[in-house]
Design a protein around this nucleic acid. Sequence first.
DNA 1: TTTTTTATAGAAAACAATTATCGAGTAGTT
DNA 2: AACTACTCGATAATTGTTTTCTATAAAAAA
Lengths: 141, 141
Amino acid sequence: MEVCITSLLRDRGFKVTPQRLAIYNMLSSTKSHPNAEMIFNELQAMYPTMSLATVYKTMEILKEIGLVQVLNAGEDSFRYDAVMTNHPHVRCTECGQVEDVYDINIDAFVNEVSQGTKYQIMGQQFYFHGICPTCQRKNSN
Amino acid sequence: MEVCITSLLRDRGFKVTPQRLAIYNMLSSTKSHPNAEMIFNELQAMYPTMSLATVYKTMEILKEIGLVQVLNAGEDSFRYDAVMTNHPHVRCTECGQVEDVYDINIDAFVNEVSQGTKYQIMGQQFYFHGICPTCQRKNSN
DNA sequence: TTTTTTATAGAAAACAATTATCGAGTAGTT
DNA sequence: AACTACTCGATAATTGTTTTCTATAAAAAA
C-alpha cells in the first residue's frame, strides 16, 4: 500500500511526507467517509501540529493522482473515500452517517443513461438518503 | 400556478409576498437549475432591493412546502429545481451547466437498492458528469 | 376602511467550509 | 553535508449560507 502511494506521489513530483501518508492511511482504513474536519480531528492525537489546510491540500493531491474520490451527499461539506470503485452511497438523515451500498450493479443503469443523453458521460454519483437500522430501532422505542 | 403557491404559503402560516412569487416564478420558468446567486442576479433588474438573504430564506420555505428540490451536483453551491419529479441530472465539467436527464425510468434501480440495504430509503439523487454537446463541438475544433 | 397583529424584507454581521499566502523547515538529490 | 525545491502550518482571505435586527408590509380584526 505505502509503496503504491509513495511511488505515485514521487512520479508526479510530489514529495512523500509523514502527513500525507498518515492522511491516506487513516482514510483507507475507515469506512466512515470522513470529511476534512473528521480526518483532522482523528489525526490530531498522533500529529499534534497537523493543520486543516494540510488535510485539504493533501486531499487535492490524492484526488489528482486517483487515490481518493470526493463525495457530496447533500451536506455542507465534502467527504472523502479511498475506495475508488464507483458505488452508490446512502446517508442517514437522522444521525448523518454515510455508508456504502454494496452488491449493486450500476452498469446497466449507467449505460442506459449514457445512451439516452447527448452528453459524453465521464462519471456519476448516486446518493440515497433514509434512516439507518440503528436509528430505525431508536425510533420504534 | 400562482393560486397554488399562494394557498400553499397561506395554509402554512407564511405570508404571500411579491418577492416569494417572483422567486418561485423565475425558478419554475427556467431549466437552468440556478443557484441562489443566479436567481438573485436575474431578479435584481426587476426588484432592485432584492437581497440574497431573501432568496435563501424563500428557498428554505419553498423546500419545506414541497415546491422546490435542492440539487447538489458536486459543486460548491446548491442549485434549485421547481420540477419535483425525481430525475437524474447531468453536469458539464467544462461549462458547468446542469441539465435534466429525460426518459429514464429509475424505479427499478431504486427498488433494487431499497431491497439490498437495511436502510429505510426515503429518496435519492443521481448525478452524472461529462461533456455537453456544445463543449464537445468546441473541443473538436 | 381602519386598526391591530404578526411575519417579512433587507442591510449588516456572523458563520462555516475551503483556499491562498508566506516564512520556516524538511525531503530528496548531488 | 549541502543545495534546491517542495511542503507544513499559522494566519488571513474568500465564498456560500445563515442569523440578527428593525422598519415595513401583509393578514386579521374591528
